[in-house]
Amino acid sequence: MIDQLTVFLENTKGRLTSLCRALGDVNIQMHSLALADTTDYGIARIICDDPKGAVAAISEAGFTANLTKVVAVEVPDVPGGLADVLDALDGADVNIEYSYCFADADNGATVAFKVDQSAIAALEGAGFKVLHPEDLYKTAQ
């Protein structure tokens, strides 16, 4: 599973900028950003190339952050591609808490799912490529 960086953000001006700047300052590259927002606050979910380093750096900068395990899977870039992936999860009775898409380095489509670990076997069994930490991180974590 992949470590997703999760950050609690108050809905105030410039807060997302500060977060991205704090990551940039320690040379961490983001692969994806998904925001879940409510009236008062938002949750930023980030896939990056050094999640542990990111938690340390931004906690130091005063953010509430932690790591969340997600499953990232490459999705065939054809009509119905994502539906096939979801079929595989449904077939294995895997419940999806949330998901979001991002582009990987080869410009292929990747989807991150907050699911339990059993999803990996279901996806691999159906022939999909599940990403491993080494596919995304710049150093071993």
């Binding site: 999760t6 950050v7 949750i43 979910r45 509430t64 932690n66 808490e97 907050k114």
Partner: peptide, 9 residues
């Protein structure tokens, strides 16, 4: 607290 599972709204 930072230990709280903030991931889930």
């Amino acid at each position: 607290n930072p230990e709280f599972p903030i991931d889930e709204i």
